[in-house]
Computed example of a mutant assay.
Amino acid sequence: MSPDLLVALIAFAFVTSVTPGPNNMMLLASGVNFGVRRTLPHMLGISLGFMLLVIAVGLGLGQLFERVPLLFTALRYLGAAYMLYLAWRIAGSAAPQTRADARGKPFTFLQAAAFQWVNPKAWIMAIGAITTYAPQENFIINVLLIAALFALINCPSVGLWTVAGSLLRRWLERPRILRVFNVGMALLLVASLYPIFTDVQGAFR
């Protein structure tokens, strides 16, 4: 991989990781409801889960979806249904009893890692990274390099959303205000599914 391509990949990894999406909406809400420390497993799970997804796409899963588009479509709809469930959970999150304690539980490491496999944005990022930034020469090494770079860049990038949520926490201690915030985060998570809703609407025309 040439230096220019590497710099472009780093920029791509940062921009796609730090911009709003399902992961970052959930981390912002988790930072508010549970704080940074309790959200760390969620953050690390996102990074490792996405790294494994990039490797899987590079090793042939992406080609399988190209050959059998129905599989990818089914995965998108499954992911959309799961994200609607997560939005419902976020909207119903209770206010923390104290700063150190909150009702409910944040995402675990394994839950966050598994979520990447049904996260539409994660699939788009992984497929885009492999098809755009992985030269055919030494392809496997390039795939592993892309996955490792994403893991290194992704965690601090998504962590900014957790920290932002934690900083907002003291302003949202009143149950009514926190309830409004959580409902707003849930609606933004649902809004991130707009491309899928558009596809569904087109399929029934």
Rank of each mutant, 00 (worst) to 15 (best):
I46L: 15
G159L: 10
G128T: 13
P106D: 10
V57P: 04
P120H: 06
Q111A: 11
W88A: 14
L71Y: 06
V183W: 14
Y133Q: 01
R169T: 03
F14A: 10
A112N: 08
L149W: 07
E137I: 10
M51R: 01
V118Y: 04
F14C: 06
L9D: 02
R176H: 00
G21T: 05
L59T: 08
R89I: 02
L75N: 10
G184I: 10
P195H: 13
A164N: 04
P41L: 13
I141F: 15
P135L: 00
F181V: 05
V180K: 10
P22S: 10
L40C: 06
L160P: 01
L59F: 14
N24L: 08
Q111S: 11
I146D: 01
G58L: 03
Q201L: 11
I153Y: 04
V32C: 10
L149N: 05
R76Y: 01
Y194D: 01
I10A: 14
A129W: 03
L5E: 06
R103Y: 06
T98Y: 04
A81M: 09
A87D: 07
V68N: 09
C155V: 15
A8I: 01
L78I: 06
W117G: 04
L167K: 15
S17E: 09
G202C: 00
F50T: 08
L172A: 00
P195M: 14
H42W: 11
G31K: 05
